[in-house]
Write a protein that binds this DNA or RNA. Structure first.
Lengths: 218, 218
DNA sequence: TCCCGAACCTACCGCCGAGTAGGCTACGGG
DNA sequence: CCCGTAGCCTACTCGGCGGTAGGTTCGGGA
């Protein structure tokens, strides 16, 4: 077992700090995602990263700091992916649609990132939630902007326009939950999941007008 | 601090085993829900239960066994709550509706139970998932039965009737995610959350017929 | 009344994993 | 060529928590 050098980052010598930090974060995301925060050991992370434990402490700090750094990096990547998917020259509805698809494409491609971002971070209390809250708020702001454009272009009335922020918050929450659910059902195509959520927005925007919606009779 | 006897089960002496087990499970659900599986210490559970640690090991076994016992008990309670909500004399749609409401009412009232059932159990791998899988399958079977009744009563065509099981699975998954999301948004009324999910079923049942649905043009 | 077993406890063990002390080595500037 | 410092490691300490040994007390049946 000790003979096999495995396929880890080739334990090269004397790499610049920047590169090492990247390797460590990659390893940490992977291990946190697989075992959860508490089951993940610093020893295993250092092993996967191909680096000794004190290096992690020297570069990224204690376990909590390391986890927070993971969340921060992945959250930034996610937001950039979404923002990149929204092409400003498209009509408003299409901007929203492509933003959604970019989101789900990210989750599908970076399952480990999403797992550590949402599932792990959410099940730990404390300082980790703050990092998530920050990302959520940025996401809600972005979605709200898209919704406003979409609503005004469709000529919805004042009351609907006023409640876009609430709808944006609901959308983001629904997206998180849906993505989380999707982790366990990878067979569903990304486009389908995205369109489900898009339908919810549709119903949300047209809630007052639409008569085809089911309403409890009692 | 040591003076205050708190409001825990009054550390009475010589109670029958049945009662002690119940107290221990209550404490365990609470502590697991608050701190998560790994942060929860057997010492704290024993303290909250008003019982010494060896009693837990004598009655419920090791930490994993205790956690599994929590999941099993809460899952059973949940299923009973749902089944109790479905009143057989109602029309099929209404049975589904009341089942949904019973589900969300349970989650709303027993937040700790749901937290330990879903969030904690799902973020731990291993034997815990099995307990969840068992409950899920029971739930899917139940929902499927309700869907079939609902579909036939509305006279949907053969293809729709064939895919009820897939729809049931999706519904259960959506319900789990939605309930999980609801934990973080307690201000939304239970009836509203339930009706959202009901709308999804509506759209799922009528997917071929309905023209009001948003579809991507590209 | 006596005694047996169930209920219950205190006080301990040992492992595992977070975090550290202290030092070695190679690259680059002078 | 030399030495300062950034990169890197081995080999520990130590505390917390899962788990247990070995009792003591009470209730109830014979």
């Amino acid at each position: 077992m000790s003979v096999d050098e495995r396929s880890r980052p080739t334990r090269a010598k004397r790499l610049p700090r920047e590169v090492r930090e990247r390797q460590i974060l990659d390893a940490a995301v992977r291990v946190f995602s697989q075992h959860g925060y508490h089951n993940a050991s610093m020893d295993e992370i250092s092993d996967v990263a191909g680096v000794s434990k004190p290096m992690i402490y020297a570069y990224l700090g204690h376990k909590e700091d390391l986890f927070a750094a993971c969340i921060r990096r992945e959250a930034t990547l996610l937001m950039e992916a979404i923002a990149g998917g929204v092409r400003a020259e498209l009509p408003p509805d299409m901007q929203l649609w492509h933003g959604l698809r970019a989101f789900f494409r990210f989750v599908g491609a970076q399952r480990e990132s999403w797992r550590v971002l949402h599932r792990q971070a959410i099940s730990q209390g404390g300082p980790f939630s703050d990092e998530l809250l920050a990302m959520r708020n940025r996401a809600i702001t972005l979605v709200d902007a898209l919704l406003v454009r979409s609503a005004t272009s469709r000529g919805l009335d004042e009351t609907a326009r006023k409640s876009t922020e609430a709808l944006a918050a609901a959308l983001v929450g629904a997206g998180e939950s849906l993505a989380d659910w999707w982790l366990d059902h990878p067979d569903v195509p990304e486009k389908v999941v995205a369109s489900w959520l898009m339908n919810l927005v549709w119903m949300g925007l047209g809630d007052l007008v639409d008569g085809s919606v089911w309403t409890p009779s009692e």
